[in-house]
Design a protein around this nucleic acid. Structure first.
Lengths: 144, 144
DNA sequence: GGTTGACCTGGAGTGCACTCCAGGTGACAT
DNA sequence: ATGTCACCTGGAGTGCACTCCAGGTCAACC
């Protein structure tokens, strides 16, 4: 049995968020002690671990609620749970791929800036080089 | 010169979003034709490509505005731009690492569900196996 | 017996990033 | 002339996921 503070500590959700999750039904009615304070079970904490995974991977709350409903409805929904999680896994895969792609572009940009600096340093240290006619370098972001 | 519709098409930002970006200064005052309609330059579109990278990798608008300000302030800010982008690149790296980690946990869960199904199929086909005393498998999510 | 400190409730407020709307303009096709 | 289409403006509204608040309850320590 864990106090709200302990669970907040362990799961990284704030106490307010835990209450919020209970209110909207993402967390099943948590037990209380005699004073009406929440006492989270091991199972609650385990479920919150799952919620954390799903949330950190961008699953909207509405879908987590659907998943929670499946879990509540017992073993006969395991097939559906697999389907749901696999679809989500696929989305995570795509998220990562997009991130990597964008990251590559950002790194190219960084390299571009580095090149500009290097070039400037070179020009500053050398006496003016013989330069081809036109100028006006039209700056960067024709990026691709 | 591109019409708003074309830019929306190319960059994936809605026309409303383009207007919004201009309003808040993320996009510099876009040129207009005689009728007051926007005509985006090649440079605008290039910049929007950068904005897309940053946005897709989770950079908040406030920070994109800081970056935009650096770009506006000319070449002497290139060092700062590199610093900013490198910090962001680092964050993207961490994002991806977290995503991968959570994904692994989700996949473990999927596998767990698969095992449950497999086990059930086995039990259903065989006659009841000799089973140790206690029951009530306390269900899943003590995940790890 | 008084003061922390951790918790409770219902409900209101926040921040972010858009998104929508009403009412209007100008260019072009039928 | 009459649509209709793509665009314009300022401002209001939306959706999501929290986060905060006022006022209150217990238990425990000084």
């Amino acid at each position: 049995m864990y106090t709200p503070g302990q669970v907040a500590e362990e799961t990284g959700f704030s106490i307010d968020t835990l209450r919020y999750y209970e209110r909207i039904g993402l967390l099943e009615r948590v037990e209380r002690n005699s004073a009406g304070q929440r006492r989270f079970s091991e199972e609650d904490v385990g479920w919150l671990g799952m919620v954390r995974c799903l949330r950190d991977t961008g699953m909207p709350i509405a879908e987590m609620l659907r998943f929670a409903a499946l879990v509540r409805d017992g073993e006969e929904t395991i097939g559906d749970r697999i389907t749901l999680l696999e679809a989500h896994d696929q989305e995570v895969e795509e998220q990562i791929a997009l991130l990597r792609e964008r990251q590559t572009a950002i790194r190219r940009k960084i390299q571009y800036y580095r090149d500009v600096l290097a070039l400037r340093a070179e020009v500053d240290s050398d006496p003016p080089l013989p330069e081809p006619a036109s100028h006006k370098t039209s700056e960067e972001h024709a990026s691709h």
